Simulated scan of single mutants.
Amino acid sequence: MNSFSSSALFGGDDGVLSQDILFLNGDHQFVINDPKKGQLDLKHPIQKIVISCGWVVDGFAVTYQLADGSSTTKAHGSQFPKASDVVTFNQNERLVGVFGRAGPQSYYHRNMVNNIGFVIFDTETGTTRTAGPYGNGNRSNQGAPFYVSDVLAFGSIAKPDEPALGLCGVFFYTD
């Protein structure tokens, strides 16, 4: 049987809660929080992450692979018309770490996610790669550092209708 948990919240809490995982069903599988309520493919849960950032991480969107082979995308915070970057995962890759800085931002006078980066492991080749960090465009390095391993899914506190600066805080579902 698998064991799953949720990390602490990194950044601020002055927005709306968004959870990509609705609940753990009786078969010990994650169910995505969308109208289809499909089961997450635990062997290859994430297909891509689209980042919107500048001085801070304004928002991101995660495309999940479901057990039936379909996919669904969940957005967190502000989504720019032209993404800052897109991190794609091949069928052998897993997100084994998320790192960054989050907390008080003196310029914006609130807690936010200053930057975020990803460590990706290829189960076929045994190699890792790093994507990011994204954000920290003003090189302030404000906030406290964080690192979370074995990430399966994301959650956030955000202001979803803001064109920029919508992401307040982020947390992770881990294996």
Score class of each variant (00 low, 15 high):
S3C: 08
L9D: 01
L9Q: 04
G11M: 05
D14P: 04
G15M: 03
G15D: 00
Q19S: 15
Q19M: 15
I21E: 00
I21Y: 02
N25D: 14
G26H: 09
Q29G: 14
F30H: 11
F30Q: 06
I32F: 07
I32C: 11
I32R: 09
N33S: 14
D34R: 12
D34C: 09
D34A: 13
D34S: 09
K36T: 10
K37V: 15
K37N: 10
G38I: 12
Q39H: 00
L40H: 03
P45I: 04
Q47T: 13
I49V: 15
V50M: 11
I51S: 10
S52D: 05
S52N: 03
C53Q: 10
G54I: 06
G54S: 08
V57W: 01
D58N: 05
G59H: 04
A61F: 07
V62Y: 01
Y64H: 08
L66C: 15
L66Q: 07
S70E: 06
T73N: 05
K74M: 12
K74C: 12
H76Y: 10
G77Q: 03
F80Q: 03
D85S: 15
V87Q: 03
V87Y: 02
V87P: 14
T88S: 09
F89C: 13
N90D: 11
N92Q: 14
N92P: 05
R94P: 02
L95R: 04
G100M: 14
G100C: 14
G100W: 04
G100S: 15
A102Q: 03
G103D: 00
G103F: 00
Q105V: 14
S106Y: 02
Y107L: 11
Y107H: 08
Y108K: 13
H109G: 09
H109K: 10
N111K: 12
N114W: 05
I116P: 06
V119F: 07
I120Q: 02
I120R: 08
D122A: 12
T125Y: 06
G126S: 08
G132M: 06
P133Y: 15
Y134W: 14
G137V: 10
G137K: 03
N141G: 14
Q142V: 15
A144Q: 11
Y147L: 13
V148C: 06
S149W: 01
V151K: 10
V151L: 11
L152I: 13
A153I: 11
A153Y: 01
F154C: 12
F154A: 06
G155Y: 03
A158G: 07
K159A: 05
P160G: 11
D161F: 04
E162M: 12
P163Y: 00
P163Q: 04
G169P: 05
V170G: 02
V170L: 07
F171D: 04
Y173V: 00
